[in-house]
Simulated assay, not measured.
Amino acid sequence: MGQGRRAIELFLALGASAGLAVGCGLPYQDGAAGPESGGATATSPAPGAGHHEGGEGGEGGEGEAGHGNTSHGERKDPGSPLTYATVLGLMQGHLLVAGELMQRGRAADAEPHLAHPADELYGDLEPELSRRGAVPFRGKLTVLQDLIRTAPTAPATAQAVEEARRSIDQALAVLPNWERRDPAFVATVIRELLNTAASEYEAAITDGRIAETVEYQDSRGFVLYAEQLFSGIAPQLAASDPALERKLASTFAALKPAWPDPVPPSRPVLTAQEVRQRTAAL
């Protein structure tokens, strides 16, 4: 079973995680009716979600329950907005770290990260893209896979990465505007990405050494994209929920030393337990 395959299976299998408190102190409710449907607001209390990458205890060591507070014995709804947004976020994380590696002239290292969105994640997402009326983008991903093998240093390859990222953004944009711009929703997606990153980081470490480079890089990419999401909501959070804004900012500051470079150090800067503790603090 491939790395991304394990990731999506784990993400769907792990139970709902406690939502992040936003605004009036209530967690985001995945799938709650929003202003456009005349229902409750997106800050009604309810579960969020758990992980994505790692299925059989392989990638990220996420195979079983018991990581942080994410396991409540409920399987994620693959059609929920939170799952949809998180899977797209995991795709973005793969492409971000691939882009870093390409800039370093490490096309061979970038190749698996460019392959996973198409080979391991897209198939699970495809029914939701169709149901939600999003433009399919498998072709963009497969072209990218071909280019990284045949023309790794060509400008067209770097351009194809950016085009794929824009396609993922466009797929996210089919969610209702009130939802994808809601700090509670975005903060819960951030939590899911960080939880997944912690599990990938754990899977990268064996006997006190970083033995699995791809898993280390996956976790780095997921944190990078989560931080981008945070940057987008930080001003709004600073006004509506300054305590949460400070907590997220401090979490990223505490986590980022674990990934000093896209090429991993031989020994981890932070232990897997330290990373897990820092993500579980959210």
Rank of each mutant, 00 (worst) to 15 (best):
Met102Asp: 02
Met102Val: 06
Gln103His: 12
Gln103Ile: 09
Gln103Tyr: 10
Arg104Phe: 11
Gly105Gln: 06
Gly105Tyr: 06
Arg106Ala: 11
Arg106His: 11
Arg106Ser: 10
Ala107Glu: 03
Ala107Pro: 01
Ala108Ser: 11
Ala108Trp: 06
Ala108Lys: 09
Ala108Asn: 09
Asp109Val: 02
Asp109His: 00
Asp109Tyr: 00
Ala110Phe: 02
Ala110Cys: 01
Glu111Tyr: 10
Glu111Ala: 14
Glu111Val: 09
Glu111Gln: 13
Pro112Glu: 02
Pro112Cys: 03
Pro112Thr: 01
Pro112Ala: 04
His113Arg: 00
His113Glu: 01
Leu114Pro: 00
Ala115Tyr: 00
Ala115Val: 03
Ala115Asp: 04
Ala115Pro: 03
His116Lys: 04
His116Leu: 08
Pro117His: 07
Asp119Ile: 09
Asp119Gly: 10
Asp119Ser: 11
Glu120Met: 02
Glu120Ser: 02
Leu121Gly: 10
Tyr122Trp: 07
Asp124Val: 13
Asp124Glu: 15
Leu125Met: 07
Glu126Arg: 14
Pro127Leu: 09
Pro127Gln: 08
Pro127Met: 09
Leu129Pro: 08
Ser130Asn: 15
Ser130Gln: 15
Ser130Cys: 13
Arg131Gly: 12
Arg132Ser: 10
Arg132Gln: 08
Arg132Cys: 07
Arg132Ile: 08
Gly133Asp: 08
Val135Leu: 15
Val135Ile: 13
Pro136Arg: 09
Phe137Ser: 05
Phe137Asn: 04
Arg138Ser: 11
Arg138Phe: 13
Gly139Ile: 12
Gly139Cys: 11
Lys140Asn: 14
Thr142Glu: 08
Thr142Ala: 02
Thr142Leu: 06
Leu144Gln: 01
Leu144Arg: 00
Gln145Arg: 07
Gln145Ser: 07
Gln145His: 03
Asp146Ile: 13
Asp146Thr: 15
Leu147His: 07
Leu147Gln: 10
Leu147Tyr: 10
Leu147Ser: 09
Ile148Thr: 05
Arg149Ser: 10
Arg149Phe: 08
Arg149Ile: 04
Arg149Thr: 07
Ala151Thr: 12
Pro152Ala: 06
Pro152Glu: 05
Pro152Arg: 04
Thr153Met: 12
Thr153Tyr: 13
Thr153Cys: 11
Ala154Phe: 10
Pro155Ile: 05
Pro155Met: 05
Pro155Gln: 06
Pro155Ser: 05
Pro155Glu: 08
